[in-house]
Simulated scan of single mutants.
Amino acid sequence: MSALGELRRIKGSTPPKQRNQNRAAFLFLLPWFLGLALVTIGPMAASLGLSFTRYNLLSPPRFNGIDNFVRMLEDERLHTSLGVTFQYVFISVPLQLGLALLLAVALDRGLRGLSFYRSAFYLPSLLGASVAIAMLWRQIFGVDGLVNTVLAWFGIEGQGWISNPDTALGTLMVLNVWTFGSPMVIFLAGLRQIPAMYYEAAAVDGASRRQQFWRITMPLLTPIIFFNLILQLIGAFQSFTQAFIVSGGTGGPVDSTLFYTLYLYQRGFANLDMGYASAMAWLLLVIIAAFTAINFWASKYWVFYDDQD
Score class of each variant (00 low, 15 high):
N22F: 10
S130V: 02
R62Q: 12
G49L: 12
I41H: 08
I41V: 13
L48T: 01
S92H: 07
A132P: 01
A104S: 10
L123N: 05
L30F: 15
S119K: 11
A46Q: 14
F121H: 01
F121V: 00
A25G: 10
L57Q: 08
A46L: 13
R71D: 14
A104H: 09
A129V: 09
S51K: 04
G110C: 06
F69W: 12
A132V: 12
A106H: 00
P124S: 05
L50S: 02
V84D: 08
H79M: 09
M44V: 08
T80A: 12
F63M: 09
L95Q: 09
D75P: 01
Y55K: 00
F28C: 13
Q87G: 06
M72S: 07
V84G: 09
S130R: 07
R112P: 00
R109W: 03
N22K: 08
G35H: 07
L97E: 08
A104C: 08
L34Y: 15
R112V: 11
V84S: 11
P43W: 05
L107S: 06
N56Y: 01
T40K: 13
L78D: 10
H79Y: 14
V93M: 05
A45K: 06
A25L: 14
E74L: 05
L95T: 01
N22A: 11
R62L: 10
F69Q: 04
Q21Y: 12
L136G: 02
F28A: 07
E76M: 07
L107M: 10
F121A: 06
I66G: 00
G65R: 08
L48E: 01
D108M: 06
A45N: 06
G128Q: 03
L30I: 05
A104I: 03
V84I: 13
R77C: 03
S115I: 11
Y55W: 15
L136P: 00
V105I: 15
P31E: 05
A106T: 03
L99S: 01
L101N: 03
L73R: 14
E74V: 00
N68G: 00
L136M: 15
A45I: 14
A24T: 13
A129F: 15
I41K: 09
V39N: 09
G65V: 02
L103F: 09
I91S: 04
S125I: 05
V70W: 02
S92I: 06
N22T: 04
P43D: 01
S51F: 00
R109T: 14
L102G: 10
G83A: 08
Y88A: 04
L103A: 04
V105E: 09
A46G: 07
F52A: 06
R71S: 11
S115V: 13
L58I: 10
I133H: 11
F69P: 00
A37E: 13
L73G: 07
L101R: 02
L73F: 13
G98A: 15
S51N: 05
L36G: 03
Y55F: 14
A120F: 04
L101H: 01
L114K: 10
L27F: 14
I133G: 12
T80C: 05
L123A: 13
R109Y: 08
L136C: 02
A120M: 12
W32G: 15
F116V: 15
L126F: 01
V93S: 05
R77L: 08
L38K: 10
A24L: 15
N64D: 11
M72P: 00
G128W: 05
A37R: 07
F86E: 07
A134E: 05
A120G: 06
F52S: 01
R77S: 11
G128I: 03
S125C: 01
